[in-house]
Computed example of a mutant assay.
Amino acid sequence: MLRAGVALADDVGIDGFTMRTLATELGVVPMALYKHVANKQELLDGMVDLVWSEVIEPRAERGWRRAMRERSVSLRDALERHRWAVGLMEAHGRPGPENLRQHNAMMGCLRKSGFSFRTTVHVTSTLDAYVYGFALQQKTLSFETPEESAEAAAATQRDIPPEAAMLYPHLLEVVSELARSGYDYDEEFVVGLDLILDGVDVLRSDWRQEPAD
């Protein structure tokens, strides 16, 4: 049932997802679903936990930076496959075992790598905010590929009046470049991620280190 729910949400989005539409998809009456879950929130919690199961678990023995990079890319990939989940990954609800396993692994990887508790919290919060924010931005934009973004930028470029081009030359430069090369989500994501990890690497020596448990 949970996998069917994930597949349905992938197709119709979270706004179109209801217990009734899932029951129709499964070929049962809506009340039959309540033999397995108490309510829609419990169903959504289970669906979100399935999304968490697709994320690579970070392990300290792989090196903290590589582990954090792999985990962040993996989480973003899961959110790209299941865009309805971006607002629910940390929403109030009952966390499932995959959710708990992932968060414990994230904290454990950093602590075992010599990060203090407070620094571990900083790094975890920053990385998650970046991944969720990027996924949310991608969800709201109207293009999917560099080619589509180039077409959109070219159309914008044609519509820019001369007086606007004089007032906003730097914005025009961005539009012109996008019209030529497009916007690649994958490339932009890893560039931003590496900037964050570079900053962590530089700053962590200045943060007080506490012995890892």
Rank of each mutant, 00 (worst) to 15 (best):
G114D: 01
Q41E: 15
W52L: 10
D206M: 10
A152R: 11
V190N: 03
H36W: 11
N99G: 09
G108C: 09
L50N: 04
L193W: 05
V55C: 02
K35E: 13
V29T: 15
M1C: 06
I160M: 07
E54K: 14
E57G: 10
E42R: 13
A165K: 12
V123W: 03
G199W: 00
T156G: 04
R118E: 15
N39G: 08
R208E: 05
L141I: 15
W64L: 01
M1L: 12
R158K: 14
D198Q: 11
L141Q: 12
D49V: 00
V6P: 09
N39Q: 04
F117V: 15
M19S: 13
M166F: 08
T120N: 01
Q209K: 15
E188V: 11
S125P: 05
E187L: 03
L2I: 12
R101P: 05
A164N: 05
Q138C: 10
D77E: 12
D45V: 06
D128A: 10
D45A: 10
A23C: 00
D159M: 00
L79S: 00
E61V: 14
I160K: 01
H122W: 14
G108Y: 03
E177H: 14
H92G: 12
P211G: 03
G46Y: 01
L172T: 09
L171A: 15
A85N: 06
Q41T: 13
G182V: 01
